[in-house]
Nucleic acid binder design. Structure first.
Lengths: 334, 334
DNA sequence: CTGAAAGCGCTTACAG
DNA sequence: CTGAAAGCGCTTACAG
């Protein structure tokens, strides 16, 4: 059963397709179509269940009402929760989302941009990887809205929404220091993106401001895509060779691996050994003892991302560089 | 800067757009285009960075290379992990995914089907809600591939992939009974979908087979979309008014709420009180003591879903009813 | 070996 | 108040 076209509706209603099109697009009044015709056509549309072919519409108008969402990995709860919020807000405005995971891989990211391009998505929401700057600038040069989130790209001048990782990290370390901790470790990843380097900088600055010498042996950079077993081995080495009394994990999955290690080596989180995880996770609230964490305001991030995208979309002008930095919140538990 | 069209390429190469089209679509040989022309055109395409407009292609050919994925909630880790696996596998075959969360709401689900329809998606992968049967059957009647997963719909005859919830639930309860538990509770949700009712049936059958009377006071059905605080209050009531010695949580988020309650009322999971969660979660491995869980084989589910979709897509024939039931695994921890 | 032309289903400037 | 027609960028049956 072929689906109905505007022509079928026009035939049934004994009017031209122009008239039907005007009615569908709410331009009936503006084009002064008579009430009688409007009613007749609307009735037929309703009865027949006709839905305009969006593909044809896109081809003609040049926009698709689709927003391309590129994230690192949809199965990471930070991204899946943001995705859900963005999805909700976008749908309310009539935009659909095509998403894809970049796995933090430049080549895959470039390929995805090409694929989105050939699908004529109206706008892009990207948690970018390094090396994608030029492709994004190309998009911007073509006047396509692009909003970055989670991690900014210094060489890309467009809207950006992200948490203040530097301060949250600084604050976390400071809270350790105030508890009298001296040997504070940082377990982070080796991906070279702003939101990760800022956490390292916050760590360094807090130590410096409190006159604690930076010791590179206390900073472990875990390779991004490796097995959890290997990650756990590296963390275990840190715990067993360095006499640390506190550790900040720069991502929640690293914290989870770290907590598993602690369990394995039977080291308790408590007065003499404290832990903070960057990005909260349900497991931390449940852990015994409960684990402190830095919470990013997901709702606020999603809200601002959509706000920026929609404003770009309506303006049809060149994107302006507008950074929205939302505060992250350190939740002290236990 | 407008993007290039096939016409631009044809002009540059001094050939017709027909020729360019044949070359792009790998039909050059078949249409016996000369080597010289092929090379010339391919060079120009490469140099210019031309990408065919997929929208136009879709309009012409009637297919979009897009698969619509409808799940309950992308922020639920079961779905986000499945989505990631499906995404990976689909991309490898040249299909893109448009996804959307139904929130287990029939009206939203119907709306989404309409939206996917007007976008001419080539196939649907759906974790369905009740009440959507007719819409899906309509799709099938139009020869559009639809594969269901996670929960089956008795009135829909098409491919389905899901775990054997009945057995996993039965097994869980049996393991309690073998430990000598007598008062075994089930905390489940009130959503009326197969994958949830099967868990209840498994619970009932296991009790029956072991001659334990079914006590409806031990079964708590939590309202689907309510606040966690309310959920916790209901679970707390169960724990405090019934003298239970084991509990099966029918979903992982219910288990998490339940564990929070246990923590609050300072009741320990241990020899005299055991817990199993349906669907594993990182928090369970980390919990003290570790929490047993039923694991669904995500990889296997995703693999089979894609296999069914692709086979429907290539056959272009009416979908056959093919149920693939994969076993879920009870992981006993601690 | 290659091309002119129809047509997919819309929107919209133009005409009356 | 309404319609005929061009055109968005492709694919493909047909012709030569």
């Amino acid at each position: 059963m072929k689906s109905l076209s505007i022509k079928d509706i026009a035939t049934k209603a004994n009017v031209s397709i122009t008239t039907v099109s005007f009615i569908i697009n709410g331009k009936a009044k503006e084009k002064s179509i008579s009430e009688a015709v409007i009613e007749k056509v609307e009735k037929i549309i309703k009865e027949s269940g006709y839905k305009p072919n969006q593909i044809a519409r896109s081809l003609r108008t040049g926009n698709s009402n689709i927003i391309g969402l590129m994230i690192e990995d949809i199965s990471n709860s930070f991204f899946s929760r943001i995705a859900r919020l963005i999805e909700d807000k976008a749908y309310k405005k009539g935009y659909k989302i095509i998403y894809s995971s970049t796995e933090n891989n430049v080549d895959k990211a470039k390929e995805l941009i090409n694929m989105f391009k050939s699908r004529k998505v109206d706008a892009y929401i990207i948690a970018p990887t390094k090396g994608i700057e030029e492709d994004i600038n190309q998009l911007l040069a073509d006047n396509t809205p692009v909003i970055l989130f989670d991690r900014n790209l210094p060489d890309v001048k467009t809207g950006y929404v992200g948490a203040d990782h530097f301060h949250a990290s600084y604050q976390s370390i400071e809270s350790f220091i105030k508890q009298g901790k001296k040997k504070i470790a940082l377990v982070t990843t080796d991906i070279n993106v702003q939101q990760i380097t800022e956490r390292l900088e916050g760590y360094q600055k807090a130590l410096e401001d409190h006159k604690i010498a930076y010791d590179e042996n206390l900073v472990v950079k875990i390779h991004f895509n490796q097995d959890e077993a290997e990650t756990m081995a590296q963390i275990k080495t840190l715990f067993q060779t360095q006499n640390i009394d506190a550790v900040l994990f720069a991502t929640n999955y690293l914290a989870i691996s770290g907590l598993k290690v602690l369990k394995e080596i039977d080291r308790k989180v408590g007065d003499d050994f404290d832990v903070i995880a960057y990005d909260d996770h349900e497991a931390f609230e449940l852990h015994t003892p409960r684990i402190s964490a830095v919470q990013q305001p997901l709702e606020e991030i999603a809200e601002n991302v959509i706000k920026l995208v929609l404003s770009q979309l309506s303006k049809k002008t060149k994107a302006e560089q507008l950074e929205i930095i939302v505060p992250a919140k350190l939740i002290i538990r236990s």
